[in-house]
């Protein structure tokens, strides 16, 4: 049983949370109402700025044409593939670099250059190499998320406490044991936060790829909308993208919580 004071305290916490949630919702609704009002009163040009009602109609239209989920699915599918490949390959390469420090020293400047290069500049080349299809899009997304994964995970590997390494060595651990008993489990947190960055990086890459080449996907929807000057379609695409990005982010956060909970 809680004391009366504790119940009061819990109530206060609950109330605080409620106020925050309501305010968040209120901002969104307020924004929509103002937008709609401005459109209805002809203060803004709906041809350029669209309106919540038109966007809603556009999305419903897409749904009725059975296009909505196929576009979303294409983008999500591409993101999941590049995200998974970037995470697995990135962690693997980071492990390799940890294992052979000399390789790391040798390729470090190349990694730095690749990391600071705006990958979209490689777009035209990628299209020529991989063709105007899903391969190019995934490759583009991979380029964006892979390098950053390697760098983050490698840094995680290297930030392991010196004393723990000394302890492992004093117990006679081999390099293999050092890696699998200390370095990797110790870096799980870093790897998971790299995952979080990776989701958004992959999504950025996929949309960029879809802008360059595609016949389907949310990026295509946005680009197509702008080409036919249908701003309602463009904004609908952006709105759908927001929702998809948020959902993917929360899924990874959920996984993170589960994994960390299991460990402690």
């Amino acid at each position: 049983m809680y004391s009366l004071e504790h119940i009061k305290f819990l109530k206060k916490l609950k109330r605080e949370k409620l106020i925050v949630t309501i305010s968040q919702l209120a901002i969104f609704i307020f924004f929509l109402i103002i937008w709609q009002l401005l459109a209805d009163l002809n203060i803004i040009n709906t041809f350029i700025f669209s309106s919540p009602k038109k966007i809603f109609e556009t999305i419903v239209g897409l749904y009725k044409n059975k296009n909505l989920f196929s576009h979303i699915w294409v983008t999500v599918y591409e993101t999941i593939i590049s995200f998974s490949v970037a995470t697995i390959l990135g962690t693997f390469i980071a492990s390799l670099l940890w294992w052979r420090k000399r390789i790391q020293k040798i390729i470090e400047p190349y990694l730095t250059i690749l990391n600071s290069l705006p990958k979209v500049a490689l777009g035209p080349m990628i299209i020529i190499w991989f063709g105007a299809g899903i391969k190019s899009i995934i490759f583009m997304a991979l380029l964006i998320s892979l390098i950053i994964t390697i760098i983050n995970v490698y840094e995680g590997f290297n930030s392991v406490n010196e004393n723990k390494i000394k302890l492992m060595k004093s117990l006679g651990a081999s390099k293999y044991q050092l890696f699998f008993k200390l370095i990797l489990p110790n870096s799980l947190n870093t790897i998971i936060s790299a995952l979080k960055i990776n989701v958004s990086m992959s999504l950025i890459g996929v949309i960029m790829g879809e802008f360059l080449v595609s016949k389907k996907g949310i990026g295509y929807l946005i680009l197509y909308g702008s080409q036919v000057f249908n701003l309602s379609l463009v904004i609908s695409g952006i709105f759908i993208l927001c929702v998809v990005a948020a959902i993917m982010y929360y899924i990874v956060s959920f996984i993170e919580k589960r994994v960390l909970k299991k460990r402690y």
């Binding site: 723990k164 000394k166 302890l167 110790n186 799980l188």
Partner: peptide, 9 residues
């Protein structure tokens, strides 16, 4: 060693 270096996980 001076630090206990216990593994948190």
């Amino acid at each position: 060693l001076q630090q206990d270096s216990l593994f948190e996980w």
